[in-house]
């Protein structure tokens, strides 16, 4: 399911706390698409995110695979 890029959902996003998040301002990758940086996989916390639950998302590392569709 696509995730709309709204402030309400962005405020629930946990990307900022993720150990794999690259050094960049962009986050909320399930809505905004993948990072252009290399992702060093140190764990993914998408599964802990209320956005993931509410939109029935099943994938991890949206920072690498791109926005949910």
């Amino acid at each position: 399911m696509m995730v709309p890029d709204t402030f309400e959902d962005a405020a629930r996003c946990v990307c900022g706390r993720c150990p794999s998040k690259p050094e960049e301002m962009k986050g909320f990758y399930c809505a905004r698409g993948e990072s252009t940086k290399d992702i060093m996989k140190r764990g993914c916390i998408c599964g802990e995110c209320d956005v993931q639950i509410d939109y029935d998302l099943m994938t991890e590392y949206y920072c690498e695979v791109g926005a949910a569709v």
Binding site: C13, V14, G27
Partner: peptide, 23 residues
């Protein structure tokens, strides 16, 4: 991280850059 400004309360994550409340 991004400079977003909030009045009277900060969200759990920044609505612009998803930085956690601690930032």
């Amino acid at each position: 991280v991004c400079g977003m400004t909030y009045e009277n309360d900060a969200p759990d994550a920044c609505v612009v850059c998803s930085a956690p409340k601690s930032q």
